[in-house]
């Protein structure tokens, strides 16, 4: 029996909890296995350099020296996943992603890590009203802009992207 209100999110990742200039080092790493090919196929990405070793062997000049590179959209999703509990557990909407660059290729066997730097915060932005979150009332949230960085086991930045999340304020955590 649930005797008190159960919150499904943490209470330390709401709008007030983010400090501009602070870099959050996310706690978990993730080693990428050949599973990346399954996700490439699940989303119907048909670019063979991700899943056809013979093609890579035959064309080292236009693949990564014959290695199957991990599809960037999955690197992006894995890095966001590593950052999720600290950044978007209490987000009402993902407003934007911008200036995203894949800077270093990722291969099976690499281990990914994530860091988020708080770039800016705002409570007054007309885009909150049109962010698509149902039932969100004025004053209940603000926008936090992060620079999200994914790194590999050697500390090389594999992905860099800015993201703006509409994050609930403490009083409105469900």
């Amino acid at each position: 029996m649930i005797t008190e209100r159960h919150h499904f999110t943490r209470d330390d990742n709401l709008f007030e909890d983010f400090t501009v200039g602070e870099t959050i080092r996310h706690p978990r790493g993730r080693t990428v296995s050949d599973e990346h090919m399954m996700w490439t196929n699940v989303v119907l990405n048909t670019a063979q350099l991700h899943f056809n070793q013979k093609l890579c062997d035959d064309s080292p000049a236009t693949t990564f020296n014959g290695r199957r590179v991990v599809y960037g959209g999955i690197v992006f999703a894995f890095v966001c996943g590593l950052a999720s509990e600290e950044t978007d557990e209490n987000a009402a909407a993902h407003l934007s992603y911008d200036e995203g660059r894949h800077l270093t290729p990722v291969f099976a066997g690499d281990t990914l890590f994530a860091e988020s730097t708080v770039v800016s915060k705002t409570e007054d932005d007309p885009r909150i009203a049109t962010c698509g979150a149902p039932g969100l009332q004025p004053g209940q949230s603000g926008i936090v802009k992060f620079l999200l960085r994914g790194k590999n086991q050697r500390g090389e930045v594999v992905l860099e992207i800015t993201r703006e999340l509409v994050i609930l304020k403490k009083a409105f955590r469900p």
Partner: peptide, 23 residues
């Protein structure tokens, strides 16, 4: 993205990045 690959990037060497992504 996956549905666009056959038309845009099946002969790509690399996907470089993303800009102005909105939902």
């Amino acid at each position: 993205f996956g549905m666009t690959v056959e038309d845009l990037s099946e002969q790509a060497i690399a996907h470089l990045g993303y800009w102005n992504m909105r939902f």
